[in-house]
Design a protein around this nucleic acid. Structure first.
Lengths: 134, 134
DNA sequence: AATCTAACTTGCAAATTGCAAGTTTCTTTT
DNA sequence: AAAAGAAACTTGCAATTTGCAAGTTAGATT
């Protein structure tokens, strides 16, 4: 269900980067093709991991949002982020990741708070390709 | 690197099921094809997540073993196991998973102990398809 | 009314996967 | 010592899946 190249990245971007729309994913610099993105969003929705709802103020825009089942992946993603920062070149700022590793519980409750309150502020500052492109 | 259908399952089987050989993976009932298995083992080795070494007593057998980098994925896998048991039909015994969720640190240190001492005993009792086949 | 924008679709080529059937090297049995 | 058996892969090929480029559609702006 999450065993493909993109699904977990989409969940991560919803969770730590504060992405909400199709456009943001497309432009994130990760290079996912639009047809694949559409397909993954549909499958993640079918799996109950996220929901899609149109914005009231702009009927074109669709807001994707994690479900409870989706936000419950936060511990998995956090451990994976920490692992990746330790062993791979992720582009994530090293000192920030060290802090996160020291305060897992605080990071998780902050992630959940932002989810509950629909606070779109990213947990991590922009990193990777999206920090070098506008 | 882990973003495909099989890689994380292989790491999980090394970590919690105590698998060591090609044959055990093939027979596990997960249904991975032998060419894909060979390919994933090669790629995981190239990524520094596991090592392959021939057994002294039987020159045919190759023992696969996690590296430090590989065993450091334990927190990720544990959280994913817990998540899966909560939301999906994984076949893992429910009460065992509840205990694991309550004692994450103990489970992790036991996993690392078994890795260090090369103790092949599985962390979890057989579950899923491999518990119904011999 | 024309233009723009967001979220997709579609068509098709290229890469990946899965299946069945080998092959090779080493071990055990007769 | 020869034959049979095992373990760990390869190989060939068909079926999916992926990625790219170019639409399309519905709603917002100028």
């Amino acid at each position: 269900m999450l065993g493909d190249r993109w699904s977990l990245l989409i969940v991560r971007d919803l969770m730590v980067r504060g992405y909400r729309t199709f456009r943001e994913f497309e432009r994130s610099g990760e290079g996912i093709a639009s047809n694949i993105l559409a397909d993954r969003l549909k499958k993640l929705e079918a799996a109950g991991i996220l929901t899609a709802e149109a914005e009231e103020t702009d009927g074109r825009k669709i807001n994707y949002r994690l479900t409870e089942k989706g936000i419950d992946l936060a511990p998995v993603l956090l451990e994976l982020l920490i692992w990746g920062a330790k062993y791979e070149e992720t582009g994530a700022p090293c000192d920030v990741m060290v802090q996160m590793a020291k305060n897992r519980e605080a990071v998780l409750s902050e992630a959940r708070r932002r989810w509950q309150e629909r606070d779109p502020a990213p947990l991590l500052p922009p990193f990777g390709k999206d920090s070098t492109e506008k």
